[in-house]
């Protein structure tokens, strides 16, 4: 998802009997649907996993601004431009809500930023694909934000209070993102032949990378089992992917576009669509840094950080000067 391949201790889930009293009380609180708050006791693994997951989620929001920011200056109308600008600003906001939540776990904002810039922390694989035409703005909103919503809606019930609260805010805004994307797709799909082709091409390029967002099957993963016991992951990757396909295929049909999967078929028996898995070798390759835009994205973030240094330092110096002259005047 926006957080992919998060690894836990790898030791498997302990039973309540195997836990020390403090950890048992913690787990029982989670099992009963209670929330864990920043100052509460928590296992070190829970804290570390959450920092990684929330951090990666936040980084995805921040890096996710780049493929869409690419089209702000070239939006086809002033209205589309204003909408896209608002959408991209929301993504910055989402990144900030998530960084705040991660900081309550004892990591600093600068640590998170540096780990992103060095490539130590990851962001979602999806943002390493380029946005080549205006129709990609439609496909990103419709498919990428649509896939993100699948994961984020259940995370509103996650056990860590600050993360759950950030998700509530994000989900409220995310629905605007998906709808504006679908609105672009409707316009293009019902436009000229060239526009319809552009919309189909965007769907062709973004379909499988969107399915990859959920991560490979984790039905047998010890990491996922632990995250689910801690309620920092609410569904398996396959469950969410199936839900996304079931929801999205009829929408593609409405648009009169073809999902680029010849194995896609409604299964009367299961009540779900059967579909092809994405190319997982490609997924791992993109995570390793070999996607079409990994280098560009990280360079853009590094440049923004380096070029902004004098502003951050200058404003801090100005605030300090104002503070001391105020004290002197008193």
């Amino acid at each position: 998802m926006y957080a992919q391949m998060i690894k836990s201790t790898g030791q498997g889930v302990k039973t309540l009997d195997e836990m020390e009293p403090q950890e048992r009380a913690f787990q029982e609180r989670i099992d009963a649907g209670g929330k864990i708050e920043p100052k509460d006791w928590m296992p070190e693994g829970y804290r570390k996993n959450l920092i990684r997951q929330i951090g990666q989620h936040g980084h995805s929001e921040i890096v996710g601004q780049l493929p869409e920011g690419n089209w702000i200056t070239r939006a086809p109308t002033l209205e589309r431009k204003a909408i896209l600008l608002a959408k991209v600003q929301d993504e910055a906001g989402h990144g900030l809500y998530l960084y705040c939540a991660a900081e309550t776990l004892g990591v600093t904002r600068d640590d998170l930023t540096r780990d992103l810039l060095s490539g130590k922390m990851k962001y979602s694989s999806i943002f390493n694909y380029p946005t080549l035409t205006w129709a990609d703005m439609g496909a990103v909103g419709w498919l990428v934000d649509g896939a993100a919503i699948m994961n984020q809606v259940p995370l509103q019930r996650t056990s860590y209070g600050p993360y759950a609260r950030a998700m509530v805010r994000i989900c409220k805004e995310e629905s605007f993102h998906q709808r504006q994307g679908f609105d672009i797709m409707m316009k293009m799909a019902n436009g000229t032949e060239a526009q319809r082709k552009m919309a189909q091409d965007a769907l062709n390029r973004f379909w499988f990378p969107s399915l990859m967002m959920f991560g490979p099957s984790d039905a047998d993963s010890v990491h996922s089992a632990q995250s689910m016991a801690w309620k920092i992951k609410m569904n398996t990757n396959d469950e969410l992917r199936q839900k996304f396909v079931d929801q999205t295929v009829p929408q593609a049909e409405y648009l009169g576009l073809t999902v680029p999967d010849e194995n896609l078929k409604f299964n009367e028996e299961t009540g779900h669509y059967d579909f092809s898995q994405p190319d997982w070798d490609e997924f791992f390759d993109v995570l390793k840094g070999n996607g079409p835009c990994n280098k560009e994205r990280l360079e853009a973030r590094n440049k923004a950080w380096d070029d902004g240094a004098w502003v951050r330092e200058g404003m801090m110096a100005h605030a300090e000067k104002k503070r001391t002259s105020k004290i002197a005047a008193e």
């Binding site: 490539g119 694909y129 380029p130 080549l132 062709n204 390029r205 973004f206 379909w207 499988f208 990378p209 680029p260 994405p278 190319d279 490609e282 390759d285 993109v286 840094g289 070999n290 996607g291 079409p292 990994n294 280098k295 990280l298 360079e299 590094n302």
Partner: peptide
């Protein structure tokens, strides 16, 4: 796959 050509490069 459906994505444009990948280009290998040194890790940033």
């Amino acid at each position: 796959m459906s994505s444009p050509e990948s280009s290998p490069y040194a890790e940033t």
